[in-house]
């Protein structure tokens, strides 16, 4: 006798999503708890941690932002292999505003976020007309070449970088700032994706022809998505710059490109929660594996291959399914 696995949506899920009928506190909790976990987890526990683990949380959050930004681009079918482009541009913008004009972080970070988003969008605008593969190629090439530009022209401090930038007043401010931005981005992007606008965006990656024939300028919408993603990435760069009190060529390093991709793929592409989970697994893991040196990157690379080939849906959709559906084995006759 053969057995087959059957999946059925839990009644609560169906009532909540399709007919909007909630009858008890239990059902309200069922809906609210998953969203509350990251909020409570980030905002309440972080202050209790030691300085060292706060640092880890901060760098995890930076990578999580880059991963969520990557996921946003992926929604429109844009595969970025150069999140470090966004990070580096944001970092150098905030750094120069602080170093040359003496602006405080409260001004440099918002300016670098918007400005970085605009610059990156302009840089990538010509590629948006082309197939996805070109976008991947150009995003991989650009940050490495820009760091060469800095090296060759010796602008913006050249290989030395810009040092002695204004730090955050204290660590706790920094932790809260990045966590709030992370949560706003997370829930904001999820809301965008769930809206009619998000439907158009995902439509572009599914079937661009159909979206074009619906009278929608897909280049313009892709540019908007790139702006959203690049702004978030630039924020991460600007934040990291003030955290380290340094802006330099490492901002364009491959780490900032590969880690977000790995985190998003491991966590589950297209969910925004997935990249967050992925970053919170991979970054602390790499912190623990610090002694292994280059082997860490080997692990990321292998994680990427294994998940892309073997478990393409990622961790988050798996958890989601367990939460929303009942599974049971039934006989097949």
């Amino acid at each position: 006798m053969k057995k087959r696995k059957e999946r059925i949506d839990r009644g609560i899920k169906v009532r909540a999503q399709d007919i909007f009928a909630l009858t008890s506190y239990r059902e309200m909790l069922y809906l609210l708890v998953p969203g509350a976990i990251p909020v409570v987890g980030l905002l309440c526990f972080a202050p209790m941690l030691s300085n060292y683990w706060r640092e880890v949380i901060i760098s995890t959050a930076i990578y999580a932002l880059l991963a969520i930004s990557w996921d946003m681009l992926m929604c429109a079918g844009l595969l970025s292999l150069g999140q470090s482009l966004f990070f580096g541009i944001g970092s150098y913008l905030a750094g120069s505003l602080n170093h040359y004009l003496g602006l405080p972080p409260i001004l440099t970070i918002p300016l670098a976020t918007i400005g970085g988003g605009l610059i990156c969008t302009l840089l990538l605008l010509p590629v948006l007309r082309l197939r996805g593969i070109y976008f991947a190629m150009v995003t991989l090439v650009l940050p490495l070449m820009l760091s060469r530009l800095v090296e060759a022209t010796r602008i913006l401090g050249g290989t030395e970088g810009l040092t002695g930038l204004t730090p955050f007043p204290n660590q706790l401010t920094a932790v809260f700032l990045i966590q709030i931005v992370l949560l706003v981005t997370l829930f904001g992007f999820r809301r965008i994706k769930g809206s009619d606008y998000g439907l158009v965006i995902t439509g572009i990656s599914d079937n661009d022809r159909s979206v074009m024939s619906a009278g929608i300028n897909i280049q313009w919408y892709k540019a908007q998505v790139v702006f959203l993603g690049a702004s978030v990435g630039s924020f991460a760069g600007a934040f990291g710059t003030h955290m380290d009190m340094f802006a330099g060529m490492p901002g364009f390093a491959l780490d900032y490109s590969i880690m977000p991709v790995a985190a998003a793929v491991v966590g589950g592409v297209g969910t925004f929660f997935g990249p967050l989970i992925g970053a919170f697994i991979l970054v602390p893991l790499s912190e623990a594996l610090r002694a292994l040196g280059a082997l860490r990157i080997v692990f990321y690379g292998l994680f990427l291959v294994i998940f892309v080939v073997g478990i393409p849906e990622g961790i988050f959709p798996y958890i989601q399914r367990k939460y929303q559906q009942v599974e049971r084995w039934v006989d097949v006759t």
Binding site: M74, G77, L79, L81, R131, G132, I133, A136, L140, I258, V261, A262, V265, I297, V298, F299, Y300, G301, L302, F303, L304, V305, V308, V309, P312
Partner: peptide, 15 residues
């Protein structure tokens, strides 16, 4: 294509 790019990129990095 996008998965192909990611997988080969990751593999190259690992090597």
């Amino acid at each position: 294509p996008l998965s192909e790019v990611m997988a080969t990129f990751g593999l190259g990095l690992a090597i």
